[in-house]
């Protein structure tokens, strides 16, 4: 599955469109990670636990989107966009969407 956030796959031609596909995950803060986070909050610096959480949920969202595209028979997703929103206090959503297409 090829992914791109440009309007097409560079150097290839799109032969069929299948419409918008999307995937999302909601992540919440984590008691163990939160302990470290509150410590880091004094010293400053990277919150590694949360960076991991962010990239895991991002990969999971991408996986859900490509799964949906595969079911439609597409072999690529173009114009991929990420969007984040806070669902409730202490929880945030990562939403990824794009257009499922077939490239030659």
């Amino acid at each position: 599955m090829q992914l791109s956030n440009t309007e097409g796959i560079p150097g290839k031609e799109i032969t069929a469109f299948y419409g918008v596909v999307s995937g999302s995950t909601v992540r919440a803060k984590h008691a163990g990670r939160d302990l470290m986070a509150s410590l880091k909050n004094i010293f400053g610096g990277e919150l590694k636990g949360y960076t991991e959480l962010l990239s895991e949920s991002r990969d999971e969202a991408i996986r859900r989107m490509t799964e949906q595209a595969r079911q439609l028979g597409a072999n690529a997703v173009v114009n991929v966009r990420f969007s984040t929103s806070s669902v409730a206090a202490g929880a945030a959503e990562i939403y990824v969407y794009g257009t499922a297409v077939t490239v030659e």
């Binding site: 090829q2 791109s4 150097g11 880091k40 004094i42 610096g45 960076t51 962010l54």
Partner: peptide, 21 residues
């Protein structure tokens, strides 16, 4: 002339220190 392309991502979470807060 593009031979290959793919989506790439990078992410980070950074906290501010107490003094700056």
């Amino acid at each position: 002339t593009v031979t290959k392309s793919h989506l790439v991502t990078g992410s980070v979470v950074i906290s501010v220190d107490y003094f700056k807060r």
